[in-house]
Design a protein around this nucleic acid. Sequence first.
DNA 1: CACCATATGTAGCGACGATATATATAGGTA
DNA 2: TACCTATATATATCGTCGCTACATATGGTG
Lengths: 113, 113
Amino acid sequence: MVATVLGSELKKGTSEVLILSILENRPRHGYEIAKLIEQRSGGLVDFHVASLYPMLYRLERRGWIEGKWVEKAGQRRRRFYKLTAMGRKALPEQRRSWRELIRVMEKVALSGS
Amino acid sequence: MVATVLGSELKKGTSEVLILSILENRPRHGYEIAKLIEQRSGGLVDFHVASLYPMLYRLERRGWIEGKWVEKAGQRRRRFYKLTAMGRKALPEQRRSWRELIRVMEKVALSGS
DNA sequence: CACCATATGTAGCGACGATATATATAGGTA
DNA sequence: TACCTATATATATCGTCGCTACATATGGTG
């Protein structure tokens, strides 16, 4: 959770798909999600936890994910989130939009250099 | 300037590189920039002019572009923007960041579906 | 004990894109 | 003439998102 490699403006709008993708396979808790995104991106996307939690609430309010408190003996309480049916349906649509955006950006802005 | 195809959250952070790229070849005025982005993206990125102008001011204040009023007989006044030396240096860096973001997104979020 | 990683949360800020609205002119058409 | 559309720039206001900073608390390690 240290360096911010990619400019912050670039990252706006990335968190949703990232979170949904992380939750695709199995439920995770917030801190774990942040860690996974950091690891899988090779440290390039440093997801500030303070940004993550509000986003998790938003996604839950929207009905795409569902959180459940889990308390185990000798462990802090954690809130595990899983994809809802709506969220599982939204994910491929989000991915399609992202691929489209990428295609456009590559065509209009990234062809030169 | 009609339909918004891509979700608005996705588009956050796209305008900078798009504008700089449009200005790479030659100076353009605001309205022209919006039209070009719309055309070149095949209508997928609909750049609301009301969002464009504030961004142009920000880029000018940052020293990446420079605006100049041009008045021709029988034409409205237009403000033409061109890349400054700083802007011309910033463009490839922005592109590199964007390509990196795309690489990460494809790896972490877009591999499935 | 001190320190760090883990774990969740809030407060406040700035950037960005959206909608709505305003102003003004050139050109085409009924 | 009156009306409409495209062109062209601009502001005001709003919601969202990511950031920094801060707060709180526990488990594990030196």
